[in-house]
Amino acid sequence: MALLEVRNLKIYYFTREGVVKAVDGISFSVSEDETLGLIGESGCGKTTAVFSILRFVVPPGRIVGGEIIFEGRDIIPLSDEEMRLLRGEGIAMVFQGAQNALNPVMTVGKQISEVILEHESITKEEAWERAKSQLELVGIGSERVNSYPHEFSGGMKQRVMVAIATACNPRLLIMDEPVTGLDVIVQRQLLALTNSLREKMRLPIIFITHDLSVIAETCDNVAVMYAGKIVEKGDTVSLYKDPLHPYSKGLIGSYPSVRGEKKELKSIPGAPPRLINPPVGCRFYPRCPYAMDICEIEEPELKNVGDNRLVACHLIK
């Protein structure tokens, strides 16, 4: 039994111009010692998809179908209060853009201890001590417990976010573009921290990014999203070595390799489709170099092609 099982999830935004099918029937699962990467261009629905795991879908958006089963319980029908108790305690999240994700007028110690006090019956002093040890855990040092967010650098703020997210020992951590906007050295340090936490706390993580190298460094498995759908899924190493879906190929081909031969980088022509009126057949069809007649008419299903590899493409038999 997987820790998290998302089945045929559909999230639509009901806007004035029409229904935006931001997430249109995706399924994935995360087991107890797995790190899953979710990759795709901006606007492909990856953030919407994981926000729904915390039930953070706000109007005009709505979860219109599917199930999100966490620890054997579908969270979509849960009451607001049940959902609140799960947030921070069962499922925690680190957001992109730590610059503004911390309250500017509250000390980081208070921001960390706040979440512990909410979910555990301990005294303020104990929570404060826990906040200090959380700061140590993320490599900041407990003496900074009384500092305010503006006294920290961007990387340190993101570490504080990790300290907050892991404060209650959640069973699942979601990281939404945690290193976007940080310089590469800080990115590296943060990824190293994530990896060490994962091992120390045996913490399953869903990692969202548009950066392939970030996934390569952290994730066991990866799912590639395009226009609200998962187009390919598999373990990171084999998917990177041998991408099957034309979109994955394009994505991986557009990245330079440091050690390999020098090739010209390929880009994918065109732009992702508008999700109000997506193409009828394969959503990648208008940009696909291998497009066939059938791609225009029939939407390919996500098929298992062996080795835990799933692809949604008519080319793959």
């Binding site: 953070f56 609140r84 994700a101 309250n103 979440v115 909410e118 979910h119």
Partner: peptide, 20 residues
């Protein structure tokens, strides 16, 4: 963004309103 962070912590609405 810090309001979303506060929500993700599972804080009560009253605490989000008052403290954040």
């Amino acid at each position: 963004d810090y309001i979303i962070t506060a929500r993700a912590k599972g804080l009560k609405e009253s605490a989000i309103l008052k403290n954040h």
